[in-house]
Amino acid sequence: MLNVGSHCAIGGLNIDFLINIVLLGFLVCTALAIVFTKNLLASAMLTGIYSLLTAGFFVVMDAVDVAFTEASVGAGIATILMLSTLKLTGFDEDPARHNVKAGLLAVCGVGVLLLYGIVDMPVFGSPTAPVHMHVAPHYIYQSMAEIGMPNIVTSVLASYRGYDTFGETVVVFTAGIGVLALLGASNHVPQSRVAPMSQHIILRVVSKVLIPPIFLFALYVQFHGDYGPGGGFQAGVIFAAAIILYSMIFGLDTARSVISQPLIRLLSAFGVMLYGCVGIVSLLNGHNFLDYSALAHDPLHGQHYGILLVELGVGITVASVMILIFFNFASRVDMVQEEQ
C-alpha cells in the first residue's frame, strides 16, 4: 500500500488537513475570480467549479452525503440553470458598481463580527467540542439499534429529523411552483423544428450510451442510501440530469413527448403527498406524525419501510421539480430563438 493516508503526518499536519488548506485556498481564489470576471458565462462556469471544489472539501470533512448533493445540485443543476438564464439575458456585465462604500462598510462589519465570534469557537476538529458531546453521540451509538441503518446521515435525515426533510421537500416543491408561476403555462406551441444538436453525431451517440447508466446509477443511489452515501435528493437530481441531458441533445419537444408537463406537475405533487401520507398513516395508527414505527409490527421494520417510502417521495419530487424547472427555462430559450 502507498504510504499516503490519513496516518501520514508532515511537520505536525496530517495530509487531510493539507488537502483541506489547499482546497479552501482554491475556493477563495475561485470566489475572487468570480468577482473579477466580467464575462458572465465565465463566471457561471466558475461557480460550477466553485461548487465542485466545495464538494471536494466536504469529502475531506467526512461529509460524503453533503458532497454528493453539492456536486449534483451545485455543480450540476444550478450551473445549467444559470447558463440557460444567461442565454436569455446576455453574457456581458456592466462594469458600473453601486453602493461601493456602503457595501464595503456592511461587508467589513459582518467580517469583523464574524472574526470576533471565531475567537471563542472550539478548536477545529476537537473531539470534545460541545457539538460532539450532546446530541450527536446518540445518533452515532443508538441509531443502529433504533433504526438499523449503517448510514447515520440517512437515519437522522429521514427519521430523527424527518420533519425537516419534509419541509425541505416542500421547499423544492415551492420553488417548482414559483418557477411555473413565473415562466410556465405560456401557451407556447412548439413548432416542429430540427433538434438543436441533430448535426452532432458524436454527442448523440455518446449520450445514448450514457443515459441508461445514469438512470441506473440514480436508482442505485436512491435505494442504496441506507448503506452508503446517497438518498432521495441526490438520486432525484441525477435522474433529472439524465433527462436534461436527453432534452439538450435530442430537443425539448422530443423530451416533452415522453414526459409531458401535466405528468411532471402531477409527479412533483405526488412526491410531497407520498411523504405527507406516510406521516398521516402513522397519525391514523395512533402514533405521532412521521413516527415510522407505526408502519409495521416490528418498529425496526417500520423504520425501514418509512425511510424507503419517504426517500422515494423526496426523490420523485426533486427529480420532477428539477425537470420542471429546466423545461420551463429551456422553453423560454426556444421561444426567444423562434422569435428571432
Binding site: H200, I202, L203, V206, V209, L210, P213
Partner: peptide, 16 residues
C-alpha cells in the same frame, strides 16, 4: 470508462 467517454466528447463539443 466514463471519463474515457465523456472527456473526449466534451472536447469535441467544445471544438465544434
Amino acid at each position: 470508462a466514463f471519463i474515457f467517454l465523456t472527456s473526449p466528447t466534451s472536447g469535441h463539443a467544445l471544438a465544434k
